[in-house]
Design a protein around this nucleic acid. Structure first.
Length: 344
DNA sequence: TAAACGTGGGG
DNA sequence: TCCCCAAGTTT
């Protein structure tokens, strides 16, 4: 079987003009490719790179990852978001090390059995790590295929996804799978961009439907999405001796397995005994599906708890980004509150 | 099937 | 300021 002209064009272009210096492209072992693919889910390359380098320094092998404790892992993932990715990464590592003799799966069917690996991530590992033909369908590829084939329906709709997977499979090469997969992502990321695509430099532009019909502005179609729901959270900042009380969050739901000061859904739950608390200014933190309004309160006379008490100046546990503004406000307040009286 | 799940970049 | 969305998967 020969590669299709489409695939040959993408492969030739990738070798000449695609990306070759990304960290996970150096020594692309299954483990290194896997970690990169998980980090890159719904995450831009520039965001993932520093996390990836730190992660690989700390966990150079799958054995290092399997042996690590959750708190250390979450510290390395803090700020990257979608924290279930870290939990699933760890779970999969223990499965491979403890149940599969440390041998990384070598087929798509085995890969998708692991937590956190879906069809597209499995195909990315197959092609990028093993150079085996397997079609991915990420945001980049969706955009390229929608434009090239003139697919005008909502790319997120199930029916459209079925068509796109079929196109992806049809175009998939039999040789040079690694360069092809990388090329499709490089095209989507750097040439066939969401706005103002650089069609002049695209090796596919003469046969691209959206380009030849001047429809790159309308393809792919915008996907309708639910508005984020407003939600109020009440944050109790318990402080004593320059230390703050942190509680490990449950292993499901928002910010799972990270640490946070006590969080409540109402002020009554936060302060049932009407203690004297100091309110800090509220602030907003936006997520894809929620708009949080966070109301922080300082408690300078906390009762005894057997949770983690960490120095405010040296928090070694993973915190959600949405909590950090409260700690900034708290630090500013403590600076002022602890000044000598004569300087006030 | 639709909603949950984070954060940051860009227009 | 607001909206879109980025190497998606899970429930």
């Amino acid at each position: 079987m020969m590669n299709t002209p489409f695939a040959t064009t993408v492969i030739t272009w990738q070798k000449q003009h695609g990306r070759h210096s990304l960290p996970w492209q150096q020594n692309p072992t299954p483990y290194r490719v896997w970690v990169s693919e998980i980090m890159l889910q719904q995450t831009q390359v520039s965001t993932a790179i520093p996390y990836y380098n730190n992660f690989m320094d700390k966990f150079p092998t799958i054995g290092d990852l399997a042996r690590c404790d959750t708190d250390t892992l979450m510290k390395y993932w803090q700020g990257l978001g979608y924290y279930s990715r870290a939990r699933n990464l760890h779970k999969a590592a223990t499965i491979i090390v403890n149940e599969q003799k440390g041998i990384f799966p070598e087929t798509r069917a085995q890969l998708v059995e692991l937590p956190g690996i879906g069809r597209s991530t499995a195909a990315a590992i197959m092609s990028l790590a093993y150079n085996q033909p397997d079609a991915i369908l990420d945001g980049n590829v969706k955009r390229v295929l929608c434009r090239y084939h003139g697919i005008t329906s909502d790319p997120k709709a199930t029916s459209t996804m079925k068509v796109l997977w079929q196109k992806a499979e049809d175009n998939s090469p039999t040789e040079n799978a690694r360069a092809y997969t990388q090329g499709m992502m490089d095209l989507g990321a750097n040439i066939c961009t969401r706005t103002k695509p650089s069609c002049t430099y695209c090796p596919l532009h003469t046969s691209c439907y959206a380009h030849t019909h001047q429809m790159t502005n309308t393809i792919p179609a915008k996907t309708q999405r639910a508005k984020p729901k407003p939600k109020d959270l009440y944050l109790l900042l318990e402080v004593r001796d320059q230390k703050i009380r942190l509680i490990k969050r449950s292993n499901t739901g928002l910010w799972a397995q990270l640490y946070s000061p006590a969080l409540f859904e109402s002020f009554t739950e936060l302060n049932p005994d009407n203690k004297v608390l100091h309110p800090l200014p509220r602030y907003k933190h936006k997520l894809t599906h929620l708009t949080l309004t966070i109301y922080p309160f300082i408690d300078l006379n906390p009762s005894n708890h057997e949770d983690q008490w960490q120095l405010l100046s040296d928090i070694t546990l993973g915190l959600p980004t949405g909590i950090k503004p409260a700690l900034e406000l708290l630090n500013a307040y403590i600076q002022v509150a602890t000044l000598p009286q004569e300087s006030l």
